[in-house]
Design a protein around this nucleic acid. Structure first.
Lengths: 210, 210
DNA sequence: CATTTCAAATACAATTGCGTATCTCAAACG
DNA sequence: CGTTTGAGATACGCAATTGTATTTGAAATG
């Protein structure tokens, strides 16, 4: 064992810990009460701290939300990278890619809601919008790269650009997921999965092969 | 002239007027500050009334939002009905249908945002969710009917069910529009239009004709 | 024209959340 | 081991909303 028990925490470690705890708590609160509806008090207390800890670690609610979105995107990117890192067999890659996308929406309901909250907030706050847009662009680039690589595996050249394909896939997935969350009875998980499957199928089917 | 000038308003007329004024104001406020962020005070004052008028006409914020969504959907339905009422020539119908859908997202930015707010709120409030879901189901039925009629015009039978097609079209449109609003630089109006065009194309192209 | 009714205004009481300013105590440091 | 530092707690004042309770004035009514 290199580092068995850590009873004493260094300052940096301690602070990093409280940051993650606060972020986790914030994610839960934002998903539960919405961005505007969540109080800093509740976030801090639910994480086991006081509001002072929040102000010591983040400049305010906006900063908190933005950091949260960034963290989500990073973990999603890591997951995606894991897929593309392996030598992707043309047929298998498709299944994985689709599954990976499905994961985005379903697995992390919290992250999905947080991102939606951030989007709506960004629409009405130009300063926040700029900052969120930067994150979105980075994510978009990564997905475009992924799709590009995938398209190169196809027997015929795709008729749609990777940019458009990425846009359609990601945006549609979000729309489908939102409706599913808002009315699971009518828009069941199965319907979302089928819809996602159809979209991916249509995207890859749409080649120059006439 | 049957009714030239109405200086004196009957009670019912007057109340109906204030109701619509309050609803208009609420739509603006919700789009501008979000559902949670908008204050009843501002809504009422911006409409030229006091908070008392709000409480006299609606049971509360929830009621206000729900009524707003219902109104939006009704006007959208009316618009859609106008399309389908005319004897739709197979080719022309497609263009119109697509245009009608594009209108949903772009023309009424306010309505789009209000519905998104309602969805997010519904996700965290089970009582509200039930009520909103009822509205969504009604809307979905109408769109399914529209798509069904349209599919019957196609030369070959569509491989996808009208339900799925309607789900995909509406949900995707919402996702595309949200991203467009949140980052118009990266996801331009043109991209949304192209994406929507591609989706509609793929939906109608996906027939049993092999 | 007197009376009733009710939409809308006003007044009131209470809660909640935010940001800052100050304090505290343990970890870093010499 | 005494001193410094800064993460986090506590305290304070301020502002914004909400729901209700009460009042008012103009339509409706006879």
């Amino acid at each position: 064992m290199t580092k068995p028990q850590k009873t004493r925490l260094t300052r940096g470690e301690s602070q990093a810990l409280t940051r993650t705890r606060l972020l986790d708590s914030a994610a839960r609160a934002f998903a539960l009460h919405g961005f505007a509806g969540a109080s800093l008090e509740e976030i801090a207390e639910s994480a086991g701290y006081s509001r002072g800890a929040l102000y010591a670690n983040f400049d305010g609610k906006d900063e908190l939300l933005l950091t949260l979105v960034e963290r989500s995107m990073q973990s999603q990117a890591a997951e995606a990278m894991e897929l593309t890192s392996q030598p992707l067999s043309p047929a298998d890659a498709f299944v994985r890619l689709r599954k990976s996308f499905a994961t985005f929406g379903n697995s992390d309901r919290e992250a999905c809601l947080v991102i939606a909250e951030a989007q709506l907030y960004a629409i009405r706050n130009s300063r926040f919008r700029e900052r969120l847009a930067a994150l979105f662009r980075a994510q978009h680039q990564q997905i475009v790269a992924l799709v590009t690589r995938f398209f190169e595996q196809l027997p015929q050249r795709a008729r749609i650009s990777p940019r458009q394909a990425a846009f359609i896939a990601v945006a549609s997935l979000q729309g489908l997921t939102l409706r599913n969350l808002a009315d699971p009875e009518t828009f069941s998980d199965q319907m979302v999965e089928d819809a996602l499957g159809w979209i991916f199928g249509a995207l890859t089917r749409d080649t120059e092969g006439e």
